[in-house]
């Protein structure tokens, strides 16, 4: 394991510093970056220059749509030929009404293949292992994950710290460093406390409301706190 590549993860609160860190890392030649964010962000995309490698989903969509239309054509025409029944003295294969079926098949299969394309292309479920992911990324934190040579570990860590990371994890383990780390932690504790306070205020509000309603509602509240403290 020690000889293989290492994963270093920097967690950020602010987008601007994150973007700067990305730019710096890329300038230093670390291209194997992965950035986590709770929201799609153009600045991050620009920093990573994702535009140079466009998404392949469009091919899925296009092929799916063409395939769908073909399925629609085959469906209508072939089944009509297979069971040729005259209605209202009209031709067995009557194209105008079939256009609707063809259109719907096109949309259906096109849409489903787009979904398939999304799953395949974004490698959902397959990609990052859980320890390299932080649950706060879906809340309000951003993150940079760098896959690097063990030798570069320190250098990257320094860059991350230089650009004001909240914390650094190496292979999923929190790495604390000297003073900066202490300061950070203090700041973090304070933050947590503040959060707790806000929550308490909130809880009280909730409780007051609950009183108006019923006791049962109160039982639900511990759940909230549990979730929050997690």
């Amino acid at each position: 394991m020690s000889k293989s590549n290492q994963n270093i993860l920097g967690i950020y609160t602010y987008v601007d510093v994150l973007v700067d860190a990305i730019k710096k890392l890329r300038a230093e030649g670390f291209e194997n970056l992965r950035v986590f964010s709770p929201v799609p962000n153009h600045e991050i995309e620009d920093a990573l220059d994702t535009g140079k490698e466009p998404s392949k989903i469009k091919y899925f969509t296009f092929c799916g749509a063409i395939l769908g239309a073909l399925v629609g054509v085959c469906f209508t025409v072939l089944t009509s030929i297979d069971w040729p029944i005259v209605t209202s003295a009209k031709p067995i294969v009557s194209i105008p009404p079939y256009m609707i079926i063809i259109f719907e098949c096109m949309i259906l299969i096109g849409g489903l293949s787009t979904f398939l394309g999304l799953i395949i292309n974004s490698r959902l479920r397959k990609d990052t292992s859980p320890e390299l992911y932080d649950e706060r990324f879906s809340d309000n934190k951003f993150g940079i994950l760098v896959n690097c040579n063990p030798d570069d570990l320190e250098k990257i860590e320094n860059i991350l710290r230089d650009f004001g990371t909240d914390e650094v994890q190496v292979n999923g383990v929190l790495k604390v460093e000297a003073k900066e780390e202490e300061i950070k932690e203090e700041a973090k504790e304070e933050e947590i406390k503040e959060e707790a306070k806000v929550e308490e205020v909130k809880e009280e509000e909730v409780k007051e409301e609950a009183k108006v309603e019923e006791v049962k509602e109160e039982e639900a509240n511990p759940d909230i706190t549990e979730v929050k403290n997690d």
Binding site: W83, I85, V86, T87, S88, A89, K90, P97
Partner: peptide, 19 residues
Amino acid sequence: CENAPCEPVCPVFATYHNP
């Protein structure tokens, strides 16, 4: 009717025109 309005609207060909 030769151009029977009832025939084409049946989704399952339950009514049709025989030869």
